[in-house]
Computed example of a mutant assay.
Amino acid sequence: MPPARSNAFEVLFQHPWRTIMVADTRQTLEKLLHSFSTAMLVTRSVDGTLRSRPMAIARVDQTDDVWFVTDIESGKVDEIDSDPVVNVALQNGSQYVSLSGTAAIIQDRMLLEEMWQEAWRVWFPKGKDDPNISLLRVRTIEGEYWDNSGQQGLKYLFEAGKAYLTGTRPAIDEDVHQKVDLR
């Protein structure tokens, strides 16, 4: 009987430099994620259509969950109750992040007190004591980023120009685009 073959992907994945690359990829996503102050929250309405709305980010916690505040009476609360699977899309210049996850409405006054920002009084005139204010947590499952800023942007412009002149597609560097499992 021939010896069992090793799975080359497993060996590669277990290699120390590969582990570091995966960690660096997550760190890159986290760094980008912490640089945003607003996001588009995408939910599915009861009739199945997708709905997006801009939301101020209240917090990104150590597990990469994203927190917002919302009015408990808003339509997005019904949409989340009906289908908690959401997307959070973020963009700033030439940096983009897309997060997939599940949303939940959290009624926790102590946590709200801890997160409270006076700027939210615009939407909640009664402040943190407003009975309709609630936290909305998106537990992230997967993230994807595109970062064409700085040197990556220059590399991309070079690759795009070369692709245009040669009639090919640009080579995208791993530093520019990655998917990250956040479970």
Rank of each mutant, 00 (worst) to 15 (best):
I133P: 00
A171N: 14
G167A: 07
K126N: 02
Q62L: 05
G150H: 00
D65M: 02
A103S: 13
L12A: 14
A8W: 10
I57V: 13
L157R: 09
M55C: 03
W123P: 01
Q152W: 09
M21D: 07
Y164Q: 09
V85A: 04
E114D: 15
R139P: 02
F158A: 11
Q152L: 14
L112M: 04
R5G: 06
N92Y: 02
S35K: 15
M1V: 06
T63I: 05
P84T: 10
T102M: 01
V77K: 00
P3S: 04
A103M: 07
G161A: 10
F13T: 13
P84W: 11
I72S: 13
A89M: 15
T63G: 12
Q151W: 14
K76R: 05
I141R: 04
T49M: 11
S52I: 07
Q178I: 12
L136M: 08
M1Y: 03
W123N: 05
I133F: 00
A171M: 11
D173Y: 03
T166E: 12
V77W: 03
S45M: 09
N132V: 06
A8F: 03
V22E: 06
S94C: 03
T19I: 15
V66Q: 04
V176S: 07
L154K: 07
D173G: 12
R137S: 08
G127H: 11
K162W: 15
S100L: 09
S134W: 00
V66M: 01
W123M: 08
P125V: 10
A171G: 04
D173T: 09
F124C: 12
I141H: 07
K155R: 15
D81K: 11
V69N: 02
V69T: 01
R59I: 11
L99A: 02
A56K: 08
G75R: 12
A39Q: 01
G153R: 03
K126I: 02
H15C: 07
H177F: 07
A171H: 11
I20Y: 12
L111D: 10
F13G: 09
V180M: 01
L182D: 01
V42E: 10
E30Q: 10
V11I: 12
E174T: 06
A103V: 13
E144V: 05
N92T: 13
A23L: 09
A104E: 15
A160M: 06
S45F: 06
V97Q: 02
V86I: 00
S6R: 07
P2R: 11
A119Y: 12
H177I: 12
G143I: 01
E159L: 02
M55Q: 08
